[in-house]
Nucleic acid binder design. Structure first.
Lengths: 347, 347
DNA sequence: GCCTTGTGTGGGATCGATCCCAGACAGAGC
DNA sequence: GCTCTGTCTGGGATCGATCCCACACAAGGC
C-alpha cells in the first residue's frame, strides 16, 4: 500500500523524489547515488552521469533539512534587524543577501521592530533552525550573549552591545559626528542642537561624544538644553523638533542623529516656514535617497549600508571558519556628503 | 569516549543539548520527554513540569531541522523579491515578516536583483529547504510553475505571471492609472507622457492600459511617442527623461510608472530647471516617503506595500490549509495621494 | 601465486525529534 | 479473581541524506 498508489492529482507524483528513488531508478545504491550527486568519493564517470541524468529527470532536489541534520551544519544564516521599512536596515539586508547568495547560503530574516523581547524570540527561532551564524543590529545585550552561549557565531552591526563577547562591524560614529559639528562651528554656528533617539547605545553615545568633542576642541561652551532626545517615531520626533525650533532662542543649526530624525526636523522646519539653510542649517547622520532629492539637498554623514552588510557577513564567515580567533571589532569610516543644507548662521 | 569528554572551552558544554540528554537528566525516556515538551499525548503533570524545568536548565532548544524532517512539514516560508533597496519591496518584506512572526513562522528572504536565473536558483534553494510556501514578486513565469510542480504553494505579489497556476495578490493597476490620467486630462493636459519600465508584465501592461483607456474615454488622441520605456536603473531613466523633456515639444505632464522612474523624472526636471508644477506636472505610481518631503509634494498612486505583503501571506496560509481550493487572484485597490505636483499646463 | 595498491560499490549506522504501538499499572465493575 | 477501561511510559521505527567501513575486483610488483 505504501508505494504504487495512484497520484491524487493525476500526472504529478504525489511526493517529492528522494535519493532512494533516484538510486533505484539508476540501479545503484543510495551511497553511490549520494556520491554521484555530491561529487564526494569514488564513482565511475558513466555511473555518475547516469545518476545525475536520472535525478534531473525526476526533478530531484536534495532535502537540505536531512542533509543538515546529518552533517550538523547548515547553509543558512540568520539576520535580525530593527525595521525593514527604514532604508538603512533595508540596505543592510540587501548587502547581506547579495553576499550570502554568492556563497550559496540562504538568509533567514526577521524584523524585531526594535523590541528586545521579539529580538530574543527571533534569536531562539534561529537557534532552533541551527543557523550557521547570525548578524544582528541589537537592541539589547541579551541576544548576542544568548547566541554566543548557544555556540552560534554572531556579528553585531551598526550598534555594539556585547563588546568582547562577539564580533562587531560599526562605523566610526564619534569621528564622523565630530567632523560635521566642526564644520558647523567653522561656519560660525554656536547654538547647534543635537536631535537624537537615545544616548546609551554605542551609536547614540558615540555620536554624542563626537558632538561634545567638537565643541571641546573648539573651546566653545556647550548648552545641554540643545541635546534633545526625540525617540524613534517620525511623528513624535517631528513634534519635539517643532518645540525645539519654537523656543525663544532657537538653534541656528541641527545635527539629526539618524535619517528618521532628519526627516522629522525637515518636516518641522517646513511647517514653521523656516528656510533651510538661511534660517536653519541641517546635517543628518545617515544618508538616504530623499536627501539628494529635496532642495536644498541635505548634508549628511554617508554610511553605506550595503557595504556595512557586506563587511558584516564577511566577518561572520571568518568567524565560522575560525571559531577561536580573537574577537574583533571592525570600524568603518564614513564620508560626508556635502549638500546645500548648511550655511553661516543668520546675522 | 563519547560522553563524559571534557568541554574544550572550560565551563560551556561543547555541544547543544538534545532531547535525549534532557530525558536522561529527568530519568524518563525520549518519548516521554517529547510529549512533555510538545504537549501532545499523555504525560503525568509532575513529570511534565520536571522535564520542562530540566530542559530550561540545560538551555535545550529543539532542533527544528530534525522535527521538520520527521514531520515532513516546515514552519518557514520563502520570500523572493526583486530589490530590497527599493522601499516598495522593503515594505512588502516588512509586512510579510510581521505576519509570519505572528503565526510562528520564520521567513527565508532572497533578493533576486530582477534576474530570472537568480530567481529560479533561489526558488530551488527554497525547495531544498522544504519551505511551507513561497511569496514571490516574479520576473518570469518559470518560478511559479516550477514551485507549483514541486507541490509548493506559491503566491505571486505585485506582478502576475502565472495566471491560473497559482494565487496572486495585485493592485488594480489599470483603474488607478486611468484615474490619475483622467485627472491630468481634466486639468487640461494633452501631451501627457508615460515613463515606464516595461510593458509586458501585468504591472506595465495594466498601467499602460489605464493610460490608454483614460485617453480613449475622453476622446483625446494619443501620441505614441510619449510612451517612453526607460528601464530599471535611476541613472539610465534620468537620461531618458532628460531627452524627453528636451524635445521640441516636451510633454506638459509625466506619469511615472513607479517610484524609481518618478525619482529619475524629478532629477531630470531639476537639472533642466523646469519648475514643477508650473512647467511640468508629475504623477507617480507608487508612493514612497520622499514624495511627501520634497516641495511641491509629488502626487502619487499609493499602494500600501505593507498591506500588500499582509494580504499575500494570508492568501498563502489559506492555500496551505486548503491546497485544492480553486486558484484565486486578490485585487487590491489603490488610493491617490494628491499633492502639489500637478497644475494646469502652461499657457 | 601472493601481497599490495587503487578503484569502485553497497550495507548499515547516524543525525535529533516524533509517533505508533505495546505494555504496565491502577481502579472499577461483575 | 477476572476482565475492562483509562492513564501513563518506553522501545523501536521513521523521516532523507551522508559517511564510515567492509569488500570486490583488477592491475602491478615481487
Amino acid at each position: 500500500m505504501k508505494s504504487g498508489m495512484p497520484a491524487p492529482d493525476g500526472i504529478q507524483p504525489a511526493r517529492r523524489a528522494t535519493i532512494r528513488e533516484v538510486a533505484d531508478a539508476a540501479g545503484v545504491s543510495r551511497s553511490t547515488a549520494s556520491r554521484a550527486l555530491t561529487g564526494r568519493g569514488y564513482v565511475a564517470p558513466p555511473v555518475r552521469d547516469r545518476v545525475r541524468e536520472i535525478a534531473r529527470g525526476l526533478g530531484y532536489v536534495p532535502d537540505a533539512t536531512a542533509r543538515h541534520l546529518r552533517q550538523q551544519a547548515s547553509q543558512s544564516i540568520g539576520v535580525l534587524v530593527s525595521d525593514l521599512s527604514n532604508p538603512f536596515y533595508a540596505g543592510l539586508a540587501a548587502g547581506i543577501s547579495q553576499q550570502a547568495r554568492k556563497r550559496q547560503y540562504t538568509m533567514m530574516l526577521a524584523d524585531d521592530g526594535g523590541s528586545p523581547e521579539v529580538e530574543v524570540e527571533a534569536a531562539e527561532a534561529f537557534v532552533a533552525l541551527r543557523v550557521a551564524g547570525v548578524i544582528v543590529t541589537p537592541v539589547s545585550a541579551e541576544v548576542s550573549t544568548y547566541l554566543a552561549r548557544q555556540q552560534i557565531p554572531v556579528v553585531e552591526v551598526d550598534r555594539q552591545f556585547s563588546v568582547g563577547v562577539c564580533d562587531a562591524v560599526v562605523v566610526d560614529n564619534e569621528n564622523a559626528a565630530r567632523r560635521v559639528i566642526h564644520q558647523l562651528l567653522d561656519l560660525g554656528h554656536r547654538r547647534i542642537a543635537l536631535v537624537i533617539d537615545e544616548m546609551h547605545w554605542t551609536t547614540g553615545r558615540d555620536r554624542l561624544a563626537g558632538y561634545r568633542g567638537a565643541f571641546a576642541a573648539a573651546g566653545v561652551p556647550l548648552d545641554d538644553s540643545l541635546v534633545v532626545t526625540a525617540g524613534w517615531d517620525v511623528d513624535a520626533a517631528r513634534i519635539e523638533a517643532h518645540k525645539l525650533l519654537s523656543r525663544a532662542e532657537p538653534p541656528t543649526a541641527i545635527f539629526a542623529a539618524n535619517n528618521v530624525l532628519a526627516e522629522a526636523v525637515w518636516r518641522a522646519a517646513a511647517e514653521l516656514n523656516m528656510p533651510i539653510p538661511e534660517r536653519l542649517s541641517l546635517v543628518s547622520f545617515d544618508d538616504v535617497s530623499w536627501m539628494s532629492l529635496v532642495r536644498p539637498g541635505v548634508t549628511a554623514v554617508a554610511q553605506d549600508p550595503v557595504a556595512l552588510g557586506e563587511a558584516a557577513i564577511s566577518q561572520l564567515f571568518e568567524r565560522i571558519q575560525s571559531p577561536h580567533a580573537p574577537v574583533r571589532t571592525v570600524l568603518l569610516s564614513a564620508t560626508v556628503a556635502a549638500r546645500g543644507s548648511t550655511a553661516p548662521p543668520p546675522a
